[in-house]
């Protein structure tokens, strides 16, 4: 698949995501935040992790308002798969493409660890690394119910790590093509990385 990888100033998992996609047989292509591109150019998009615009203001807030997001929205509206990892997830929430918001961890500290995740629909359990300071998923009560009713909870932590509402680690949009999660699947796809649950994790 031809998959766009969107880079903002401060994105730092871009090269990792590129490699992850390439090693799984895809054709990744970088896009820069100032560029607009035609949605025809790609079959899917990834917004990698990092600290876009230094996470100044709020994580993902500045990136969500940069020119390229118009192209990202176009791809999303066409129903093509769009994945936000970590800071990418924060950007998709800030851009209104995913519900909810990500706020500072309840402990106030950055957390780097392996986390066990559970899929509420399939009950599948997987292990992925996490590395975030603002990974606490927040959503208002009425929207929280909707999220569950509409099967939009993608992954949950099996343990409380960062204060997320319902231990939510990842969500999808209503139609399911736009997805975001805080853990890093691209950091767990070879044995030497300590786990392989990130292999063929998404598409």
């Amino acid at each position: 698949m031809k998959i766009g990888v969107v880079r903002f100033p401060g994105t730092n998992c871009d090269r990792d995501v590129y490699k992850w996609l390439q090693d799984q047989g895809h054709q990744p292509q970088f896009y820069w935040h100032e560029d607009l591109f035609s949605s025809q150019e790609v079959e899917a998009l990834v917004l990698p992790g990092g600290f876009s615009f230094g996470d100044y203001l709020r994580s993902g807030a500045v990136a969500a308002r940069s020119p390229i997001m118009n192209s990202v929205k176009e791809v999303a509206n066409q129903g093509k798969p769009v994945l936000g990892i970590c800071n990418g997830f924060q950007i998709l929430c800030e851009a209104g493409l995913l519900p909810g918001a990500l706020i500072p961890n309840s402990g106030g500290e950055f957390i780097d660890d392996w986390a066990e995740l559970k899929s509420p629909s399939t009950k599948q359990l997987i292990q992925l690394p996490i590395a975030h300071g603002d990974g606490r998923y927040f959503i208002h009560e009425e929207d929280r119910k909707k999220l569950w009713d509409q099967n939009q909870v993608w992954w949950q932590y099996t343990q409380m790590l960062n204060g997320s509402v319902d231990q939510i680690a990842g969500v999808t949009n209503l139609s399911g093509n736009v997805r975001g999660l805080m853990p890093h699947p691209e950091r767990a796809y070879q044995d030497w990385m300590g786990g392989i649950d990130g292999w063929k994790f998404w598409i």
Partner: peptide, 14 residues
């Protein structure tokens, strides 16, 4: 201490 450090970015950490 090390839980506060990103130890895996860059895909090299074995």
């Amino acid at each position: 201490i090390y839980r506060q450090y990103d130890q895996r970015v860059g895909l090299r950490t074995m």
